[in-house]
């Protein structure tokens, strides 16, 4: 099975408000707040750690769920967050965001 990598979409704005992630979509400025699981995915989305490892180390421990079921749910959630352009997902590791990538003046 191919592994899935997550990275934070560089277009969003984000801040943690007393542990609750507040995210503004870069597409249309819609504001989201993330639930606990989505917040874990967001915080762990470094582009380098595969989703199954995030689930094993961060989600299974906290929620006491079966790894297979947790991975399935996490993948569904990650795809949903990607649809909202909050996360980027890829079957390859994702290089880190460099704001100067657009070419500097």
């Amino acid at each position: 099975m191919s592994r899935l990598y997550l990275a934070r979409n560089p277009r969003v704005a984000a801040r943690s408000l007393d542990g609750e992630m507040m995210i503004m979509s870069g597409r249309d400025s819609t504001l989201f707040t993330l639930n606990r699981t989505a917040t874990i995915l967001w915080q762990a989305a470094d582009g380098a750690t595969p989703l199954d490892e995030i689930v094993e180390h961060r989600i299974c421990n906290e929620f006491e769920v079966e790894p297979a079921e947790a991975l399935h749910d996490a993948e569904t959630l990650a795809r949903e967050l990607a649809n909202h352009e909050i996360l980027q997902i890829s079957e390859e590791p994702i290089p880190p965001f460099t704001p100067a990538a657009g070419g500097s003046l």
């Binding site: 704005a13 400025s29 657009g102 003046l105």
Partner: peptide, 14 residues
Amino acid sequence: EREAARLRDLHVES
């Protein structure tokens, strides 16, 4: 044009 493209790349809200 160049500044506008740069602002897009940096994703300013408005």
